[in-house]
Design a protein around this nucleic acid. Sequence first.
DNA 1: TGTCCACTGGAAGGGAGGGCTT
DNA 2: AAGCCCTCCCTTCCAGTGGACA
Length: 408
Amino acid sequence: MENIFNKYLERTELNTFDLKVFEPSFVPSRMPHREKEMTLIADNFAKIFIGASPKNEIIYGKSGTGKTAVIKFLGRELKEISHGKKNVEFIYLNCQVKDNAYSVIESIGNAVKGEQIPFTGWSMDKVYTTARNNIDRWNGSIIVVLDEIDRFVIKNGDDLLYQIMLMNSELQNSSITIVGITNDLKFSEFLDPRVKSRLNEEKIVFTPYSSDDITDILNDRLKLANVSNFVTEGAVRLISTLASQENGDARKAIELMKTSIQLAISNNDNTVEERHVFIAKNKLEYDAVAETLKTLPLQTKVLVLSIALLKESGIAQASTGDVFDAYRNLASSAGIPILTPRRITDMLSDLDMLGIISAKVKSMGRYGRTKIIELSINSSETKKIILEDENLSKLKNYNYAKQAKLIF
DNA sequence: TGTCCACTGGAAGGGAGGGCTT
DNA sequence: AAGCCCTCCCTTCCAGTGGACA
């Protein structure tokens, strides 16, 4: 039998492809249509070299407008040019990963040489003091990038920003600059006036890319990946159009390009055409939802499942009460503890944020006030993915129709 | 016009699970 | 080993509320 890998090896042109330039972590050295923003930020950072400290900065812009890529690029350049000449640290933190004050201060304190701070266990006081002493002894300039800073502030308040600024004012030999990245234009409204005035930040807005901008970006990457001849113009145009319809998100466009190329390769097709793009788009959308569902905590899975069940039994728009009843039934059938309605309310808000459901508060007058909950994704696929969880094996043979009748 | 329903969402706190210090 | 401290997940308690209905 023919070796399954033969078809790949026979296609010698594939060996010259370099698809890693489509990875989200890839930072290009050329950023089309972001030259102006890049210069603004670079001018600010450059103050380090004349012994001044850069201003704090908040960068606004929708997702996929190049905020993170620009800042990472500048960070790389900054470290490279100051290497061996000046102590400069560039710390990039994503607040979804570093989502509490402890881990942010710990990361900053450990970025420079000094006493190692453990990732948990110490009191906040001790973490703060150790970090401050480390940084001051090190004698240099730190730029801390807090990506998705709005999420952090919503979750924990703005105390962290205050603490970092306080630390900066206590430093004798070093300085800390905060660069916040957010896609929420109203972000600074969340801040305490005390924090806001002290932050005294410079605002930079990244506007969404146009369809033509995205075409340029894609063509740039295609050249880098050495696949320009493999991708048709029509496919590039289609991806650009789709992306500009979705707030000019270049990240999504690049991901869609990668998936389209991979699809054409595995189909053994000679070029990437529009049809590949459409299939790739569906695949990406499905994968994203599936991944989110799979990583939900068990209780939340049961909650989503109960909403899917309601939808399948004809209740596409359910009240919180309906959902709670359905959830209670499912949870007891699954043999897991039943949580309180208050906890369910919070979980519903989280699911709303994730885009899995939409929940709108509605008053029914005499009949109270509730949230109208609607599943935003396909119910049968949702069911399938959630039931893959081994902890819910008892629900595999669950009689949905019977249960639905019981509830109503 | 006031009532009252079915919630919403804030506040406080408990306890488990992680880890450190002494 | 005992004593802290942190976060996460959850409960308990409760004041607040938009609007249909009497």
